[in-house]
Amino acid sequence: MKVTHLFIGSFLLMSFLFSWRFNSTPKTSTVFFCEGSSLKIKGSSNVNKFECVLDMNTLSDELLVSYIESEDYLNFTNTNLVIPAKHFDCGGKMINKDFQKLLNTDEFPEIRLVLKKVMKSNITEDCTEAIVDVLICGIKNTYSVPITTSKSIEGNNINGVLALNINDFSLEPPKKMLGVIKVSPVIEIDFLLNFKVD
Rank of each mutant, 00 (worst) to 15 (best):
L192D: 13
T148C: 06
S66L: 04
F7Q: 06
N167M: 09
K117C: 14
S29I: 04
K93R: 13
S184V: 02
S24R: 10
G138W: 09
F32C: 07
T58W: 15
E107D: 13
M94G: 10
N167L: 10
L171W: 02
L171A: 05
Q100W: 09
P146Q: 11
C34L: 14
L178S: 10
K116E: 10
N194L: 12
T25I: 05
F88W: 04
E51I: 07
G92K: 13
D133T: 07
T105Q: 08
A163R: 03
V145M: 02
L74S: 00
K176V: 09
N57T: 15
F76N: 01
P26C: 00
D61T: 07
H87K: 15
L39N: 02
K97D: 12
F99G: 06
N122S: 15
L64K: 14
I153G: 00
D190A: 11
V134D: 02
N122V: 15
D98C: 13
T28V: 06
D190V: 13
F169V: 02
C52N: 00
M1P: 11
N159C: 08
N48G: 03
L135Q: 13
M94W: 08
V183F: 02
V118K: 12
V145T: 00
L135G: 08
C137V: 08
P26L: 01
E125I: 14
I123N: 05
L115H: 08
T25M: 03
N57G: 13
R21T: 12
F169S: 03
F88Q: 04
N159H: 05
S19R: 09
D61N: 09
F22P: 10
K176L: 11
Y143D: 01
V47I: 10
N194V: 08
M177N: 07
R112W: 06
K49E: 12
T142P: 07
E154N: 06
V47S: 03
W20P: 11
P185F: 06
E129T: 14
V186R: 01
D72A: 07
N141A: 07
L192P: 01
S152W: 09
N141Q: 14
T149A: 10
E125H: 13
G91L: 04
K49P: 00
I189F: 05
F7T: 05
G179C: 05
L171N: 08
H5K: 11
G155V: 01
S10V: 05
I189V: 09
L13I: 01
I123M: 09
E188G: 01
